[in-house]
Simulated scan of single mutants.
Amino acid sequence: MILWINGAFGSGKTTCAKILEKQLPNAFLYDPEQAGFFIRNQLPESLQQSDFQHHPEWREFNYQMLLKIATSFDGVILVPMTLVDATYVDEIIGRLQREGVDVRHIILEANRRTLVKRLNKRFEWFSSWGKSQIDRCQSAFESDIHAEKIVTDYQSKQNVARAVAQHVGLTLSSKCFRFIHFFHGFVFPLDNKLACMGEIQLHRLTCRIGQPHAAEQQLAVTI
């Protein structure tokens, strides 16, 4: 199965895909952007398009790569990538489906305020590329691009990933692990959130290591 996670910039596509990759037993994260970077870097400036998706080579390469992986890999292929041109969607997703490949197409949806806030957290201030594409993306998802939509506003990352998995019939693992590092006997009070495939409130954890000169120790937190 190919799971194509679409959405505007800042909707949480890559974050969702990474959570799914870690919580599915056999998943592979495929990044179509890498082909775009290669094309852009290997063309004279006069031949470069403003958006590498406009290069037919980008669409053909990703179609061929995904077809190869889908017919050779027994697992879930995760593809977090914004596609807002209906023709391009058909050239990649539609063409794969016509070849008999099981492609599930999901759109992560968020309002403008949420998208801007998330992009600011990624240090995309002022008129960044992502912000300049919000209206274009939202308009396309309302009219031209048809797929199941999952609203991500006010949802935790884990809940979004769970909703995506449930929609396509996948089961996520119930546990994950993170490590908190302690050094040289210092006391570390934590009053913030510990992100572990979701948002879990960690209420004031204090740990004192008795040997000041001991090597680094780890506390494993299991959820």
Results as ranks from 00 to 15, higher is better:
residue 197 M to H: 11
residue 216 E to S: 15
residue 180 I to C: 03
residue 155 Q to A: 11
residue 208 R to V: 10
residue 64 Q to Y: 07
residue 26 N to W: 03
residue 108 L to G: 02
residue 153 D to T: 04
residue 168 V to C: 06
residue 96 L to F: 08
residue 107 I to T: 13
residue 108 L to E: 01
residue 120 N to M: 06
residue 185 G to H: 06
residue 179 F to W: 10
residue 201 Q to W: 10
residue 55 H to S: 10
residue 189 P to K: 14
residue 165 A to N: 07
residue 90 D to C: 06
residue 143 S to N: 13
residue 122 R to L: 12
residue 122 R to T: 07
residue 10 G to L: 08
residue 66 L to W: 02
residue 32 P to W: 06
residue 76 V to L: 04
residue 159 N to I: 12
residue 109 E to F: 01
residue 108 L to P: 06
residue 216 E to Y: 02
residue 3 L to R: 03
residue 137 C to F: 04
residue 152 T to W: 09
residue 53 Q to L: 09
residue 6 N to C: 10
residue 128 S to V: 01
residue 25 P to W: 09
residue 9 F to M: 13
residue 42 Q to C: 13
residue 120 N to P: 00
residue 203 H to Y: 08
residue 27 A to R: 11
residue 47 L to R: 12
residue 144 D to N: 11
residue 85 D to P: 04
residue 196 C to P: 02
residue 93 I to D: 01
residue 126 F to L: 07
residue 130 G to F: 09
residue 194 L to S: 05
residue 97 Q to A: 11
residue 49 Q to N: 14
residue 164 V to N: 01
residue 133 Q to S: 09
residue 111 N to W: 01
residue 110 A to T: 05
residue 218 Q to R: 13
residue 12 G to L: 03
residue 118 R to G: 05
residue 1 M to H: 12
residue 199 E to K: 11
residue 214 A to Y: 03
residue 190 L to P: 00
residue 117 K to H: 10
residue 162 R to G: 01
residue 110 A to P: 07
residue 92 I to S: 03
residue 162 R to S: 10
residue 149 K to Q: 14
residue 47 L to Q: 14
residue 211 Q to Y: 13
